[in-house]
């Protein structure tokens, strides 16, 4: 009973917040509703008694959206609306809804055919984190390590891109000369 009420509440809130993310013209509303939606998604994990995954969702996406905020701060004036080229919200709504529906059908169709069965049933007595760890380090060890390697590659390339001339000052030599000339004048 409570679970169903909570499920529908979280569903409506999540979909509503993500709709705001897509449709709004204000960068601050978009980012805030994105963050709120991510937090509500963790509610589904808690409903399914996957506490660990729920908390991980919370921590990871709070940090991730925080980084997005930083970019929004650099590129936009957060208190003003953004001028968009396509002004038709109905078109965005229709296309987004259709794509979402298609995705749902694609993923649901094979599952609807036969009854859902868990491939790796949870082990008796093992906690949430232990179950995730067991599957991650036995069945899915290779994808897990490959993902870790990809993140490492991304991090190193990021450092190289950003840190090429970190020892030099950001003001170029010409700027310094111009400044000096202005002082002399």
């Amino acid at each position: 009973m409570y679970e169903q009420i909570a499920f529908y509440l979280f569903s409506v809130l999540t979909i509503g917040l993500f709709l705001v993310t897509v449709l709004t013209k204000n960068i601050l509303y978009a980012m805030t509703s994105l963050a709120g939606g991510m937090v509500f998604i963790s509610g589904f994990f808690f409903l399914l008694e996957a506490d660990f995954l729920g908390v991980v969702q919370l921590i990871v996406y709070v940090g991730a959206v925080m980084a997005l905020y930083a970019f929004a701060m650099m590129f936009f004036d957060a208190t003003r609306d953004i001028k968009e080229n396509t002004t038709s919200n109905y078109l965005v709504f229709f296309l987004g809804g259709m794509i979402a529906l298609m995705l749902v059908i694609i993923f649901i169709a094979p599952i609807m055919g036969d009854n859902i069965q868990s491939m790796y049933p949870p082990i008796e007595g093992a906690g949430n984190a232990q179950s995730v760890g067991l599957v991650l380090f036995t069945k899915y060890l290779v994808p897990f390590e490959v993902a870790a390697l990809m993140l490492l590659v991304a991090m190193i390339s990021g450092i190289i891109l950003a840190g090429k001339k970190m020892d030099n000052s950001l003001t170029t030599q010409e700027d310094i000369i111009i400044e000096k000339e202005e002082i002399i004048k």
Binding site: D51, F52, V55, V56, L58, I59, V62, G127, N128, A129
Partner: peptide, 10 residues
């Protein structure tokens, strides 16, 4: 909840 520490920090 049995993941208390992570929940609090999150």
């Amino acid at each position: 909840i049995n993941v208390g520490i992570l929940f609090v920090l999150g």
